[in-house]
């Protein structure tokens, strides 16, 4: 019954509709676009360096004759995959840690929350940047793990405080008196009751992860060549002299990045309105 109400609210919400359409279009662009494009991302056109957008190279070419359209779609794919993976892992981690801290209380709570405090003191950007030399030569999956590992702290605090109140509910108490072990109560009773918070959070984490990934890749601390992401492409296209003379190198990846983050945020906001109508933030 509830899911029907939520679904109706979602469909009626204009924000969510625009957001969903945006993400869908970007997904299609990223995964269908390469089949339509005349050039592959690994092709180098030695007859065309730094060409502005035109009929042959739709979005222009790079310093080495790479096709910006193909490169940007390739980067978009990577940023999308990284964003979704990181959001999934970090929200899962936040749910488990926060619920464990809230449910078990005592020293478990103290140690976990102390760890959270410590991780919040150093910005995650800084920690991953320091660890980044180890990424060189490794796969980008390692980078995904790092991003997820340092992105769950704030959510886990919210989960913890909500678990504290759930812990005293009748159904949780009943389960506990029936002798069901703590971790099963967390998985069966606590987390499902936090699902709306977790869904909203996972969605907003996608955009957070995409911004985090592109920011690190911008400085070369993230996705490593020959892989490209929107961050590395924007880095190649920015810098005062490049961006003024060859704006297409910057504008296309940056435009897609902003469109992606904006669409995901729209969905997240719409989801919040639908799942949690009383909330204000």
């Amino acid at each position: 019954m509830r899911s029907k109400v939520v679904l109706r609210r979602l469909v009626k919400n204009k924000q969510t509709r625009y957001g969903l359409i945006g993400v869908l279009l970007l997904l299609i662009l990223a995964y269908v676009g390469p089949f339509v494009a005349p050039y592959d991302w690994s092709d180098k056109d030695f007859m065309a360096f730094m060409q502005p957008p035109g009929p042959d190279h739709w979005w222009g070419t790079t310093q080495t004759g790479g096709d910006v359209f193909a490169n940007t779609l390739r980067g978009l794919q990577k940023s999308l995959v990284i964003g979704f993976l990181v959001a999934l892992i970090s929200t899962g981690l936040a749910a488990l840690v926060g619920a464990a801290a809230g449910y078990f209380g005592g020293w478990v709570d103290r140690i976990l929350m102390w760890g959270v405090d410590l991780l919040l003191v150093l910005p995650s950007f800084l920690i991953i940047a320091i660890l980044s030399p180890r990424l060189k030569g490794g796969t980008w999956l390692l980078f995904v793990l790092l991003l997820a590992l340092f992105g769950w702290m704030i959510t886990s605090r919210v989960v913890r405080s909500m678990t504290l109140s759930l812990r005293e509910r009748e159904y949780v108490l009943a389960a506990r008196y029936m002798g069901i072990p703590g971790w099963r109560i967390i998985l069966r009773h606590v987390l499902p009751n936090l699902s709306s918070l977790l869904i909203i959070d996972a969605t907003l984490n996608v955009s957070g992860a995409i911004i985090g990934e592109t920011s690190l890749s911008f400085f070369g601390f993230g996705v490593q060549a020959p892989d490209v992401s929107l961050g590395t492409l924007i880095a190649d296209g920015s810098g005062p002299s490049t961006v003024i003379s060859y704006p297409w190198l910057f504008l296309f990846p940056a435009g897609l990045l902003v469109a992606l983050v904006l669409s995901v945020n729209l969905i997240g906001d719409g989801l919040r309105d639908a799942l949690d109508p009383g909330s204000t933030s």
Binding site: I211, I234, A235, V258, L262, N265
Partner: peptide
């Protein structure tokens, strides 16, 4: 404010330069 929050700092800075 919703749009601005979707623009990362490095994109914002480069757009300001443009």
């Amino acid at each position: 404010s919703f749009v601005i929050m979707a623009v990362p700092v490095f994109v914002m800075a480069t757009m300001l330069i443009l």
